[in-house]
Simulated assay, not measured.
Amino acid sequence: MTAPVIIGSERSEVGLPHGMAVLRDGGSALDAVEAALRVCEDNLADHYVGTSGLPNARGVVELDASVMVGSSRAFGAVAALQGYPNPISVARAVMERLPQHCVLVGEGAATFADECGFETAELLTEESRRLFREALQLEEANVEGERTLGLQGDRAYRLAALELVRRFAPHDGPWGTINVLALDASGELVVGVSTSGYPWKYPGRVGDSALPGAGNWCDLRYGGAACTGRGELSLRAGTARTVVEALGRGDDVERACRDALADAATLPDDFRAELRVLALTPDGRHGGAAGSPGSTYAVMTADSAEPEIHPRSVR
């Protein structure tokens, strides 16, 4: 029997206890990941996932999420989903109820969610609308919503976003992805990702969170990994799969994470901003890496009273 563990990126702390409760009761890693991420998606104080997520350039909240099971590499995802507050559950339904496909986007994802009986909700809250408008005036913030100083790429992205907002005027009416990775008592490993994506993004933009190999990858032979931050970089570098393949070659977790970020850092990108990665192995080892000091991740085991905060290594 494997000792269960669940880990998550920054701001996952609100959901991890719910996921660990599932694992303590003998539940599956898949159930634990979904339970943890649903709580994060429903957290109105978090403007980077689920309800109250920050909107695109038209002022519409679009959500992405994915889930991947290590033993089978089964994968389900939705992207640019509007009006459904728990995209992680819709992503799981894609994997389980529509196995001939892996990813649904936009109107098709919403149609499928409706067929499955998921409830709709207004995702743009008054608070997220206010933050959307005010944040456009900030000059030094990190556009992923992490508590780090903005870089030149953040400022370039903001200028491009302002141009989009001028073209798609919003109607009346810290952002960043959350990762959760869980290992259950049976030895199953699952990775889940949920996000509202870059605020002010071009309508229909899909980041790494909904795509296997980029923001999410899980292979029970070696481990699972997930990314937060500049999704276009992890899409181009295949960052999550790069980490897992390094684990398969025998690298330790932190080295695998650091080397994957170093590879992504070689790519030219006028909108460069920080990319982070997190990983968990089938024997319960875990770690993460980031491009700047101060980045953390959270961990819970069956003996944990609350999430324990661990530092990420710095690339």
Rank of each mutant, 00 (worst) to 15 (best):
T2W: 01
T2K: 04
S9D: 13
L16I: 12
H18F: 12
H18K: 09
G19F: 04
A21P: 00
V22L: 01
D25A: 15
G26K: 10
A29T: 02
L30D: 05
V33A: 13
V33K: 01
C40W: 07
C40P: 05
S52I: 05
G53I: 12
G53N: 12
G53F: 11
P55Y: 10
A57V: 03
R58M: 14
G59S: 10
V61T: 14
V69S: 01
V69I: 02
G70M: 05
S71I: 02
S71D: 13
S72N: 11
A77C: 03
A80H: 01
A80M: 01
L81P: 04
G83M: 12
Y84F: 15
N86I: 03
N86V: 07
S89Y: 04
R92M: 03
A93V: 01
R97V: 00
P99S: 07
P99L: 02
Q100E: 15
V103C: 08
A109R: 07
A109V: 03
A110L: 10
T111R: 13
F112S: 07
A113Q: 07
A113C: 08
E115Y: 07
T120L: 01
A121L: 07
E122P: 04
E122S: 13
L123M: 14
E126A: 14
R130M: 13
F132R: 03
F132E: 10
R133I: 12
R133E: 13
R133D: 09
R133K: 11
A135G: 15
L138S: 12
E144L: 11
G145S: 12
T148P: 00
L149G: 11
Q152I: 02
G153K: 04
G153A: 05
G153M: 05
R155S: 11
A156P: 00
Y157E: 09
Y157P: 00
Y157I: 02
R158Y: 00
R158W: 01
L159Q: 13
L159H: 10
L164W: 06
R166L: 09
F168P: 03
H171D: 14
G176T: 05
T177V: 10
V180N: 06
L183I: 05
D184S: 02
A185E: 13
S194K: 03
S194M: 06
T195I: 06
S196L: 08
Y198H: 12
Y198C: 08
P212Q: 06
A214I: 06
D219S: 05
R221W: 02
A226P: 02
G229A: 11
R230K: 15
R236V: 00
T239K: 04
A240L: 10
T242F: 13
T242M: 15
T242L: 15
V243E: 06
V244R: 07
V244P: 09
G248W: 02
G248R: 01
G250H: 11
D251G: 00
D251V: 00
D252N: 14
C257R: 04
A260S: 15
A262K: 14
D263H: 13
T266C: 10
P268N: 00
F271M: 07
F271Q: 07
F271V: 01
E274V: 12
L278Q: 03
L280K: 08
P282Q: 09
D283C: 09
G284D: 11
H286A: 15
H286K: 08
H286I: 06
A290Y: 02
P293E: 13
P293K: 09
T296S: 10
T296P: 00
Y297F: 15
A298D: 15
A302Y: 00
E306M: 14
S313P: 00
V314T: 08
